[in-house]
Design a protein around this nucleic acid. Sequence first.
DNA 1: CGCATAATTCGATGACTGTCTAATCAAGCG
DNA 2: CGCTTGATTAGACAGTCATCGAATTATGCG
Lengths: 122, 122
Amino acid sequence: MSKLQEKVAALPAEPCCPALTERELTAEEAELTAAMFKALGDPVRLRLFSKVASHPDSEACVCDIADVGVSQPTVSHHLKKLKEAGLLLSERRGTWVYYRVEPSILAAMGRLLTPGTAPKAA
Amino acid sequence: MSKLQEKVAALPAEPCCPALTERELTAEEAELTAAMFKALGDPVRLRLFSKVASHPDSEACVCDIADVGVSQPTVSHHLKKLKEAGLLLSERRGTWVYYRVEPSILAAMGRLLTPGTAPKAA
DNA sequence: CGCATAATTCGATGACTGTCTAATCAAGCG
DNA sequence: CGCTTGATTAGACAGTCATCGAATTATGCG
């Protein structure tokens, strides 16, 4: 995970890749993009992400979202994965740790799924 | 995978779930939605999907897209996964098998990632 | 300091997954 | 029919992953 992690961190943050319909992804683009989809590809992580994203200011304390049916260490593990994928940011404020959605990430992923740019057959 | 598969097949096809930012997903919604993200969470699958989606009419023969650096059985395996997740449809026409993007799926996933509906803190 | 609470890290384990080769199925052609 | 080519299925194996309980770190409080 660490090499990929470096690549994710080195991204220009905004526009990783073209829409999936625009052209076929290169191997490297696919690797980077798949890592984000993979992060959302677990039910527990998706619920955690949704909980954070739907909280006021897209920010939530771990204690607010930890009730997803798994142990707290597991919650922590998943939050770490989401953070490594570049989907969440975390910050400690006193007693609690807050996670929030990386601002541009939703738009970027949404752009990937933009439909309708595939050419018609003759 | 089979029980999930049934649920996916039983979906009203169009609108599985609200935007991730709108409210937190239920456990069941998360399970269904995560299955789709998971399907795109592998580099090879993402490239295959992108190849199909960017082909004319969002449709391609296996022989057109099989060059992704893994053996053909592996390609077939991944295409099956994408199909099971509801992202692709397949049809045999004579000698070749064609895969195409399930029409409404891109829009549906895009909707999940719609940003900006999270309420502001007071 | 000593204690309580929030959160993460550690180590282990069972399950899942991506990949391959070999075998099989499907269609077209002579 | 048999043969060729396209594609899937079967079976095996190595690596990854989600999960847990226990231990650890971090903060605040009296």
